[in-house]
């Protein structure tokens, strides 16, 4: 996983609430191996007409947003299923950051495990970013993880965001949390032994 520092990139505005993980990656593609690349499944059904042609009114299909690395949506983005494929699809399509008014909890933690930064901002800030990206699709947004700030190209104001320190650390260092856990091996083994004695019935027999 590449370490995440400062990202200055263009934005694709997605004025939609409740974009669930079924929209991000429809269930029938869950069986696909990751090695195929998941970018083709991103918003697969949402971005197509019934006859399979691409919808021109869907922002991700529009030429001016093709190089965007930041996706900005309304509330409850990534709610629903735990499928990590929803994040693989975003990552494989080149997105490094998703900004929304709120997120599905599992989706949010899946993002961080795949080097995609989830940023929660108030809807007023999101409106300003949408307006910026619609007026000038080439205007960059700067997302700085170290200072936890988002800066618009045309706006003197910066917006701060909250992020869990642990998630921040993993993202900034591109770290695998299994390594982190294994650093606690001794504590873990001690816990496991005494827990097994306290709750003998939890070791399955049957």
């Amino acid at each position: 996983m590449d370490p995440f520092g400062t990202l200055a990139a263009t934005v694709v505005p997605l004025r939609l609430a409740n974009v669930d993980t079924d929209q991000l990656q429809p269930g029938r593609f869950l069986r696909k191996p990751r090695s195929d690349g998941y970018d083709n499944y991103l918003f697969h059904d949402l971005r197509r007409n019934e006859d399979g042609s691409m919808r021109e009114d869907f922002p991700l299909n529009q030429p001016q947003y093709q190089s965007a690395e930041i996706l900005v949506a309304d509330r409850n983005f990534g709610g629903g299923s735990s499928r990590e494929g929803a994040v693989y699809a975003l990552a494989d399509a080149g997105f490094r950051c998703v900004i929304a008014a709120s997120f599905g909890d599992i989706f949010r933690s899946n993002c961080a495990k795949n080097g995609v930064l989830p940023v929660e901002l108030p809807i007023e800030a999101i409106e300003r970013i949408w307006e910026m990206a619609e007026a000038d699709p080439s205007a960059p947004l700067t997302v700085d993880l170290a200072t936890q700030t988002v800066r618009l190209a045309n706006d003197p104001e910066t917006f701060g965001f909250e992020i869990d320190p642990f998630v921040k650390e993993c993202l900034m260092e591109g770290k695998d949390d299994i390594d982190l856990t294994l650093a606690h091996s001794e504590t873990l083994s001690t816990f496991e032994r005494s827990y097994g004695q306290d709750f003998p019935w939890l070791t399955p027999t049957g």
Binding site: S82, E84, V87, S109, N110, I178
Partner: peptide, 12 residues
Amino acid sequence: IGASEVSHVLAT
């Protein structure tokens, strides 16, 4: 949990 977390649980 997501797939990365599943592999964490399997390993630890």
